[in-house]
């Protein structure tokens, strides 16, 4: 049985396409549980050290770095979740921080995921490279089958 499906997203148009496809697949059987997952890939340390002035400025508005990460992450998750909600499909949202491909595969391993559905490219959107580095790495590290959506 393929019960738990993971849909990693970075908010890119490729992720949205993968989410639409996952929604189509989820409609095949109500037992399919979808988890929408995003990874904070900007290192916190970099933001703390080099973008401290942005953080300080935002600080005036009562936002700390953690809030800024949460805001971006929630925007991505809500945008992706909306695709499922349109079809009346309930999904679980989750997130992590670090190297996207490694985090995706680690999440799949620890959360009994039987299928990963993702786009071939993401935010970097390099047209000349057919497959993005994240999807390429996920294909190699994944503990379960992966569907790549073009």
């Amino acid at each position: 049985m393929i019960n738990n499906v993971l849909v990693p997203t970075d908010g890119s148009e490729y992720s949205m396409r993968a989410a639409k496809y996952a929604a189509q697949l989820a409609e095949l059987n109500p037992d399919i549980k979808v988890t929408v997952f995003t990874v904070d890939s900007v290192p916190r340390r970099f933001v703390e050290r080099h973008l401290y002035w942005v953080a300080a400025d935002k600080g005036k508005q009562g936002k700390n770095i953690e809030d800024m990460f949460a805001e971006e992450r929630n925007r991505i998750l809500e945008q992706t979740e909306a695709i499922f909600k349109e079809k009346g499909i309930e999904v679980k949202c989750d997130h992590s921080a670090g190297n996207p491909a490694e985090e995706i595969c680690e999440y799949a391993r620890t959360h009994d995921i039987q299928l990963i559905i993702m786009g071939t490219r993401g935010m970097s959107g390099l047209q000349e490279i057919f497959m993005g580095s994240v999807s390429h790495k996920v294909l190699h590290l994944s503990p379960c089958p992966v569907i790549l959506v073009k």
């Binding site: 497959m131 294909l139 994944s142 089958p145 569907i147 790549l148 073009k150």
Partner: peptide
């Protein structure tokens, strides 16, 4: 994976 325009599932 590289040339197919349709979604592809890879099984190991």
């Amino acid at each position: 994976i590289h040339r197919c325009k349709m979604p592809v599932m890879l099984v190991r």
